[in-house]
């Protein structure tokens, strides 16, 4: 790897193009159920770090604009993550795939 080749998720997401829906998120989390989940696997199972635990409130911050649309989160936590496709034309925009 050359020196500046990205290694972290943040740097790799920086390579992607998005058509972000500024008006609404395509993801919802039931905060009470999230807080009650002892494992909180979505925090690491999401390959785009969409879900971050707020250290103060313990709530789940949803960085939906990072989403790469793999759908792993709602398979991991079907009882509290509601994930659906962004509206037509919105969201991640792959060039290679």
């Amino acid at each position: 790897m050359s020196h500046d080749n990205p290694k972290t998720i943040e740097d790799k997401l920086g390579l992607l193009q998005y058509r972000t829906d500024e008006e609404k998120s395509h993801i919802e989390v039931d905060q009470e159920k999230f807080k009650a989940d002892p494992v909180k696997a979505i925090l690491y199972a999401c390959p785009a770090k969409v879900y971050v635990e707020d250290p103060q409130t313990g709530e789940c911050i949803i960085n939906y604009e990072n989403c790469v649309e793999c759908g792993t989160c709602h398979v991991v936590a079907p009882d509290y993550v509601k994930w659906f496709y962004p509206e037509g034309g919105k969201g991640v925009h792959y060039r290679y795939g």
């Binding site: 790897m1 050359s2 080749n5 990205p6 790799k12 997401l13 390579l15 992607l16 390959p47 785009a48 790469v68 793999c70 792993t72 792959y94 060039r95 290679y96 795939g97």
Partner: peptide
């Protein structure tokens, strides 16, 4: 030595 062009999931 390569340059990452895209990350996907």
């Amino acid at each position: 030595g390569g340059e990452t062009l895209e990350y996907s999931a």
